[in-house]
Nucleic acid binder design. Structure first.
Lengths: 245, 245
DNA sequence: TGTACATCAGTGAACGCGCGTTCACTGATGTAC
DNA sequence: TGTACATCAGTGAACGCGCGTTCACTGATGTAC
């Protein structure tokens, strides 16, 4: 069942991948709105109607690209977390490592980034399939916070009264084991992180910022502190001390 | 010269405005990529070629819409600054007032917002005319900082060594009278502010955040503090110690 | 004030293009007996 | 192992559509004398 059954099946997988690869190329050249089944088929040496054996419509191809893009950036974030030192290490540095990895991916794949974090494609509504993959980066950030929380590397920020109910609601939804104040701060930091990336990818920093990596790194570190992450050496007893970058 | 000269001239102004209004309507319905001269003309009861008396091409119409959008959000920010109390008032609150005004405008005009702060329109490169209007919101933020600086309401944040040259370069470009550390923090805060707005406008907060205005207000206040703005009453002698919200 | 001319907004037809999608088909790959 | 049948990837033609832009034109508005 789960093994590859024959030439037909293998060919199907390969052609599907080739279609998506070519579509990604065209995405990079012309943007999502101009993605055309006919152009993809043409470039692949197929006739346009043949694509309908693989994707029932243009929107389905777009959906597949969106799911893949969320998957790629999610995998990038997860890999960065895995290579960012032990889970008791200097937490702001781990956070910054993940943030920088996401930023690097975005700069390397600007059109795929725009597909998922830019203005929504007109007339296209994302189906349910995209919800899961869309949350992977967020889950990584939550995971970092949890690591810090479990190793006493988290200083819970104060929580203003009027925001408390919403913070509790979000915490119940996203991470019931974490303090609501931290979850609220995390959601805000999450949006702000992507704000920095989007401004860079979408050109808002043109003629304004030059040393963009330095500015980003610094801002990412400050965001880490804003959600309560503490530098390693603060946690003495259970052996976490390590100087941050 | 500067007075309205006759029916022809007045008609030209009115028709130009009608074209842009209709184009904005279609923008809201279908997005920038699908903006079509023919559809605009059709809706206006004109023949499509007639639009060429007003805009030499589709791209020029798009450019006009972009310039208008920057102008609208810029004017909104300027108006908010003007009504946000005296220039010596509680600075974080003034900052939050401007931030909220920009957010309100974005939520009221999501497609115009997407036009200027979303993914770039494929195949379209913004001409020089857009650079000036694009900086108005930024100038308002700089103005707020300057007000605080001149009334001793600004605590200059520390500036990490490696970022110093870039901070000095940006300060020389954007606001030579302000401390480089503040300018660097401001640029980051600027991007983060729009990150919060974009996540909300573009739907990233769907199924995650409900009390979006509260979260935004809170985050905007914290951004104000991150650039060094101090609450009003704290400025006693040299204006340093101040309890955050 | 009246006439001759210039300006220019808007018309209508046309050009050439690329698009998404459907449909009946061919022929190769896979399957059941 | 060989044969008959089912599956399905890919073809090629066609449908109907909307687009940006050009061009020669008509007729109203404005201007110079």
């Amino acid at each position: 069942m789960s093994t590859i059954r024959g030439a037909r099946e293998r060919a199907r997988i390969e052609v599907t991948a080739a279609i998506k690869d070519e579509a990604r190329k065209q995405l990079a050249a012309d943007g999502a709105a101009k993605l055309s089944l006919r152009a993809v088929a043409r470039e692949l040496g197929m006739v346009s109607s043949a694509l309908y054996r693989y994707f029932p419509s243009r929107d389905d191809l777009l959906t597949a690209l969106i799911v893949d893009a969320y998957g790629a950036v999610g995998a990038t974030a997860e890999a960065a977390r895995a290579t960012a030192g032990g889970s008791t290490g200097p937490h702001p540095a781990r956070w910054a490592t993940v943030a920088c990895a996401v930023r690097d991916w975005a700069l390397a794949h600007p059109h795929e980034y725009a597909l998922i974090y830019g203005s929504p494609v007109p007339g296209y509504t994302a189906p349910q399939d995209t919800i899961g993959p869309a949350s992977r980066v967020g889950l990584v950030l939550i995971g970092l916070i949890r690591d810090a929380f479990l190793s006493d590397g988290l200083a819970v920020p104060p929580l203003a009264g009027e925001l408390r109910p919403e913070a509790e609601r979000m915490a119940a939804d996203l991470a019931p084991d974490l303090p609501p104040a931290v979850v609220a701060a995390l959601v805000a930091a999450w949006a702000q992180l992507f704000g920095l990336i989007s401004f860079e990818v979408f050109g808002q920093f043109n003629r304004v910022v030059e040393a963009r990596d330095l500015l980003f790194r610094r801002a990412a570190h400050e965001l880490a502190h804003s959600v309560g992450l503490l530098d390693g050496q603060a946690a003495v007893a259970d052996g976490a001390s390590s100087a941050g970058s």
